[in-house]
Design a protein around this nucleic acid. Structure first.
Lengths: 143, 143
DNA sequence: GGTTAAAGTGATAATCATTTTCAATTGAGG
DNA sequence: CCTCAATTGAAAATGATTATCACTTTAACC
């Protein structure tokens, strides 16, 4: 799975006439080494561990490439920071966001997805991606 | 309906020991005069028409108060600008966002809402608000 | 109506995340 | 190995939003 994302990204890079560099490889490795979404800062700090001279700009630029290549997707929770999550073919997860402790839980629900498609069709809208976030208090904080 | 929102905001202001000012009244009027969501800049420009000396900071501050008072809600589409939409008691609308022309259409679907509540319950999560956005190409752009 | 303390305002400076710039470096193909 | 376009990192620039602060206004009280 990781192998395939690496390959996907390599192909994307090649098809655009871009170059493969140690920086991009390192950022990709670090990104793939986590299961969940991460902010640019999270990733920057992680990459610094393996490649101390990396610059912020490079991480920003590389993440945009991930999004363009389709292996990642930007997400915005409204706290002013952009995060990136993994995109697996045909898979999508939505979020439960605790407004007290900030915890983010992922979930999937096929029925909701299907209903979304129906609504879009009614409007003649062609859906590319979607975002569903539920804000509230998580079970731990409610105890 | 507008009357009730004005009243709601007045009550909120009073309950917090805040003051009623011409600036706040003007911003509220301008906000209520539109049916849909608007960015801070949109509103700022509109308010300037009625109150030319208004400052950006005041509009920002007032919008935050609207959100706190419950008559408005922040929305983020990922373009770096915060927008505010009207909140009507018990009503909620989700968004179809065209990534080509930027058009935003609102919709409601009770079944989706109900399913969301079910999912949240499974996680022991208490939902306060939610956000559902479908990104893609609108019917006009598809022609 | 005048007094006053607390809240509000507006101009401006400050922040914060993200982009751009640019000189120096590096990768891929010939 | 050479060449040239792509890449990088540091630092400056940007754009949205927030904080600061001297001055003004509101609401309550006398």
């Amino acid at each position: 799975m990781k192998r395939s994302k690496k390959k996907l990204f390599q192909e994307f890079i090649a098809s655009k006439g871009l170059k493969s560099t140690r920086q991009r490889d390192t950022v990709l490795e670090c990104f793939l080494s986590s299961d969940h979404h991460m902010s640019t800062e999270d990733l920057y700090l992680k990459v610094r561990g393996k490649y101390p001279t990396i610059g912020y700009a490079t991480v920003y630029r590389t993440l945009k490439l991930f999004a363009e290549s389709g292996i990642a997707r930007e997400i915005h929770f409204g706290d002013g920071q952009t995060r990136y999550e993994h995109v697996a073919e045909g898979e999508h997860h939505d979020h439960l966001i605790c407004t007290r402790c900030g915890a983010v839980t992922e979930f999937e629900n096929e029925t909701i997805e299907r209903l979304q498609a129906e609504v879009a069709e009614q409007f003649g809208f062609e859906v590319a991606t979607h975002k569903l976030e539920l804000y509230g208090i998580c079970s731990k904080c409610r105890e």
